[in-house]
């Protein structure tokens, strides 16, 4: 419990994470409403349409998560952290848990905000949260953002430099995976395994394509598994590294 409390104090005792979280919340809600409003001009708005902008919020939260790690390397507080908690797996796990909980809460608030704003301001849509699919599309954002935050923590540990790690999380989920999907032969083969595309399928309106990972729930499980594997690699690297 000690390391988790320590990470919570760290994250809440500087202003940058608060600004990042507020930015994630506002951009997700605002852009979500905007995109849903565009859809509303031609067809009835669906629950999934209100979540079209969630990748914006996810990206901001990943930057927050990366900074939670790389700032420690930049300022040297990572040394203080490892002196206080020499079990590096425990230290990094605590950081991942705290950042993931924050990202999950902000993600959920953003998702509910986008949905509520659309429901209030865009009459005529079918926005009732009636079944498990609708709940998955709204509340699932929380799970994806939590997982994405853990991926970002792992990237921060592996890369250590702020510039490189931030670039990676800006490019990878939003652009990188789409580009890989366009590569002939390779793209279609690895496409279903790309983690952030799997996260998108987990939140999608209807299963896109068939196959083992066609089901949203299986896609979600794969995303979670990928997150766990990348984090385990980061912990292993940190444990065998000098400082």
């Amino acid at each position: 419990m000690g390391p988790i409390t320590a990470e919570r104090i760290k994250l809440t005792s500087t202003r940058a994470p608060w600004w990042s979280a507020a930015a994630a919340l506002l951009t997700t809600t605002g852009a979500g409403l905007l995109l849903a409003a565009t859809v509303a001009t031609t067809e009835p708005v669906t629950v999934a349409a209100t979540q079209s902008a969630r990748v914006v919020g996810t990206t901001v939260l990943m930057v927050l998560a990366v900074l939670a790690v790389t700032t420690e390397y930049a300022t040297g507080t990572i040394g203080t952290t490892f002196l206080a908690v020499p079990d590096r797996a425990a230290a990094l796990r605590a950081k991942a848990v705290v950042v993931a909980v924050l990202a999950g809460l902000v993600g959920l608030a953003g998702a509910l905000g986008s949905w509520a704003a659309s429901a209030l301001l865009l009459p005529g849509g079918d926005l009732a949260l009636t079944g498990p699919d609708e709940w998955r599309q709204v509340a699932g954002v929380r799970l994806v953002d939590a997982g994405a935050a853990v991926v970002a923590v792992a990237i921060g540990v592996l890369v250590r430099r702020t510039a490189g790690a931030v670039t990676l999380v800006l490019v990878w989920p939003a652009v990188g995976e789409s580009l890989i999907g366009l590569v002939p032969v390779v793209g279609p083969a690895v496409g279903p395994l790309l983690p952030f595309q799997a996260a998108d399928r987990f939140l999608a309106d209807a299963p896109a394509g068939g196959g083992l990972l066609g089901s949203p729930w299986l896609a979600g499980v794969w995303f979670a598994l990928f997150t766990a594997i990348l984090f385990a690699i980061a912990v292993r690297v940190a444990r065998h590294r000098d400082l």
């Binding site: 005792s13 500087t14 940058a16 507080t77």
Partner: peptide, 18 residues
Amino acid sequence: WVHPNRSARAHLRWIAAS
């Protein structure tokens, strides 16, 4: 080895908590 934007008290608080 301190975060420049964190207060001295908060710096010690997280170390104590850990």
